[in-house]
Amino acid sequence: MRLTGVIRLAALLFTLLGTWVVVQTYFDRSWKAISLRSWLGATSRPSRSQPPRHDCGNQKSCPGDHFAFKVVSGAANVVGPSLCFDDKVLMSGVRNNVGRGLNIALVNGTTGQLLKTGSFDMYSGDVKELETFLTEIKDGTFVLTATFDDPATKMNDKIRMLFTKLGSNHVSKLGFRDNWVFLGAKGMSTKTPFEEHIKNNQETNKYDGWPEVLEMEGCAPRKMD
């Protein structure tokens, strides 16, 4: 009986050992095969195409004879405005060239080259500086404008007239702490389609004492010589 028991125990151990070897070998090979297929599959499948990026981060691209632009007003008196043209940020808080009041960038209408920028404090600054800046703009120049904090306390009739000649239809109504974004040009014979204005209204303001941010994007036609 003892010999029989030993034989049975040895047979059981052999069976268990054989089963363990088979299981280990099967799962080891299966894991390796799956990993290899997954690896090959990951490298052989083309990666998902990224959505196209348009100039200035706009939602749509522009024709070849147009410039992409995006103008964003300031947020209350906290976050400054941003002006982008032909995929170049011309003015922004990051560039440290914006300030309270009106922020203006002048761009060559044919080449898209930045000509000049200016920030004009319309609450406590010298309004004569803005008058000179606007008067000296040459024909064929794009004028991008964005407000920050207060754009109108010191705005006079002459400045409003100069912006009107650049194509503005809203500057005559611009008031204390209004938000305004604008793209016009010197020498325009009609009003610009690129302009947005929102009034400072305590009942509708998004911020305490200031209206919501305005964001405008589009395609400005290149001036042909």
Rank of each mutant, 00 (worst) to 15 (best):
N201Q: 00
F14E: 09
L114N: 13
K128Y: 13
T110D: 08
M155S: 12
F67D: 05
R37C: 06
S92R: 00
M188F: 14
L162G: 06
L114K: 14
M188T: 15
A220N: 05
M91G: 06
H170V: 05
G112W: 00
L83N: 01
M1H: 13
G187D: 01
G167P: 02
W31C: 09
K186Y: 07
D87T: 04
V98E: 08
F142M: 09
R100Q: 13
C56V: 08
W39Y: 14
L214I: 04
S49F: 07
T192I: 04
A185E: 11
W31E: 13
L40P: 03
L13V: 13
E203T: 07
A10N: 05
G74L: 13
S44H: 15
V94P: 08
G125L: 05
G184Y: 12
I159K: 13
F85H: 01
Q113Y: 00
L214C: 03
D208A: 11
C219T: 08
V79I: 14
D157C: 02
E212Y: 04
R29N: 10
A152Q: 14
L115H: 01
G74D: 10
D208H: 06
T153C: 06
A75F: 03
L83F: 00
V94R: 14
N205M: 01
L3E: 11
E196A: 10
A33F: 08
G187L: 02
K138Y: 08
G209E: 07
H197M: 04
V78G: 02
F163T: 12
V89H: 09
K116W: 10
D126V: 04
W31P: 05
T19C: 09
T192C: 03
R2I: 10
K173A: 09
L17N: 13
T117Q: 03
G175A: 15
